[in-house]
């Protein structure tokens, strides 16, 4: 049945990062990461600053999830895309408001605040940023 849902304290700890798409930038080599890291995955520096990531980008590649982890079955099939943001940073995020057969590499997408999952009927609701084709 897949991995279990994150704890309430963990969802709380990560809320701002997920709500506002915050990443980290390495002050030494410039590498941008999402989610934010404690150490740079490229040069190993711990000299990292938190930054707000651009809210627009384009799809580089994507995959369709048809056998989802726990809590995501309701949304299946859904799309996970590798997105290049306007500042060149690459992140993995879900696409929404778009069917699998409508997605194309190179399509422009914008950030949108959506539900990630519900932890059952009586549990908490997790929220965060996904991407969709722009409204205008």
């Amino acid at each position: 049945m897949g991995i279990s849902a994150p704890s309430v304290p963990r969802v709380w700890r990560e809320r701002i990062i997920k709500y506002r798409l915050l990443g980290s930038k390495c002050a030494d080599c410039g590498k941008i990461s999402y989610p934010p890291r404690k150490a740079c995955p490229r040069c190993g520096s711990t000299n990292l600053v938190e930054i707000s990531l651009p809210k627009r980008g384009k799809v580089l590649s994507y995959t369709v999830i048809r056998t989802p982890p726990r809590g995501y079955l309701k949304y299946s099939p859904y799309i996970i895309a590798l997105i290049e943001l306007e500042n060149g940073a690459r992140i993995l995020a879900q696409l929404t408001d778009v069917d699998p057969d409508e997605v194309k590499s190179g399509m422009v997408v914008e950030a949108v605040f959506r539900r990630y999952r519900e932890q059952g009927e009586d549990g908490i609701i997790e929220y965060g940023i996904k991407f969709r084709p722009p409204i205008t």
Binding site: K74, Y75, T96, V112, F113, R114, R115, I125, Y127, K130
Partner: peptide, 16 residues
């Protein structure tokens, strides 16, 4: 509303 939407996600976008 879509499957991942509710009155909270609506409020966030209108407010933005």
């Amino acid at each position: 509303p879509g499957l991942d939407e509710d009155s909270i996600t609506f409020a966030v976008e209108a407010s933005k």
